[in-house]
Design a protein around this nucleic acid. Structure first.
Length: 302
DNA sequence: GCGGCCG
């Protein structure tokens, strides 16, 4: 029950007067969409969902009397954080493992620790050319309620972030003014993130899970599409995005059948390398004849 | 009003 924000004047100058030079330092003029605080033991955690022209992100800060540290989670990572905290809350104490979460250029490390004060989860963010920053979340005194409260807040924020994404999408359909407001367009449906599913604890978190994807076309179409024809088949390459991040959808269309694979952009380079490998080892066979009937066709502009 | 985090 010690899970909730109390009136500590939490929000960053939210009620604050204009003219108070109110802009948060460092965060610049980023718009604050939602903010919450959580107290666990003597630590205070601040959750700020923010948005700027480059997209949406969640800033999580840990503050004690002596320490302040912050991690920045891109919006595509919020649901992963939620899943991971669910994992740490729901799993048996004995089979808790460290996890890594890779998002674009950042890597987040989740590690369990324990000392005289109790158990804790260390979440640290490593990104190129920036100091590693870490927050430490106490498990809590009884039944991991520290982690559970943290998870509950992540769930709220994840939901809010999803709604912002959907409304941005609608807005940009109806009016072009907002173009460039967020690069996180696209729909995606997360069905219930309900209780008992301990997110897949496999190590390659970012590869296997893009399954809950929009199957309709046009969603998250970022205007980047390619089509190739090979024999009787056509292959469509479409960039899209949902709240898990950006992906490339490759669809094979033959007759009225269509099937797709969804490739998170984080895997695109590997994909490319592997295709390159096969091109290399089959070069002799395809260069002689096959290449003539593989053509690239750009879709009509606009 | 604790204490982790190794920069």
């Amino acid at each position: 029950m010690e899970g909730n924000s109390s009136g500590g004047g939490s929000s960053v100058g939210g009620g604050g007067v204009a003219g108070a030079a109110g802009v948060v330092g460092g965060g610049g003029n980023d718009v604050e969409l939602m903010c919450k605080t959580l107290q666990v033991e003597h630590k205070l955690f601040y959750f700020d969902l923010k948005e700027n022209p480059r997209g949406r992100y969640l800033k999580i800060s840990e503050k004690t009397s002596s320490t302040r540290s912050t991690i920045i989670v891109p919006s595509s990572g919020i649901s992963w954080f939620l899943d991971l905290f669910n994992y740490y809350v729901n799993s048996d104490e004995h089979d808790l493992f460290s996890k890594e979460l890779q998002l674009d250029t950042k890597v987040f490390y989740f590690d369990i620790g324990e000392n005289r004060r109790g158990r804790f989860l260390k979440v640290s963010e490593a990104s190129v050319s920036r100091n590693r920053s870490t927050i430490i979340v106490p498990a809590g005194t009884s039944r991991d309620e520290g982690w559970a409260s943290f998870r509950n807040i992540l769930a709220d924020i994840n939901e809010a972030s999803r709604l912002y994404m959907l409304s941005n999408q609608q807005n940009s359909e109806s009016s072009e003014r907002l173009v460039g407001l967020s690069d996180d367009v696209g729909a995606g449906f997360i069905s219930g993130h309900s209780t008992q599913q301990p997110a897949p604890p496999t190590s390659e978190l970012n590869v296997d899970r893009a399954v809950d994807l929009p199957t309709q076309d046009e969603i998250g179409n970022l205007g980047v599409s390619k089509v190739i024809r090979v024999d009787q088949k056509r292959f469509f390459f479409d960039l899209g995005s949902n709240n898990r991040g950006h992906f490339l959808r490759i669809s094979e269309v033959a007759g009225s059948d269509r099937s797709s694979i969804i490739l998170p952009l984080s895997g695109l380079k590997q994909f490319h390398e592997i295709v390159g490998h096969f091109v290399e080892i089959t070069k002799d066979r395809i260069e002689g004849m096959g290449s003539a009937n593989v053509r690239t066709v750009d879709p009509p502009q606009r």
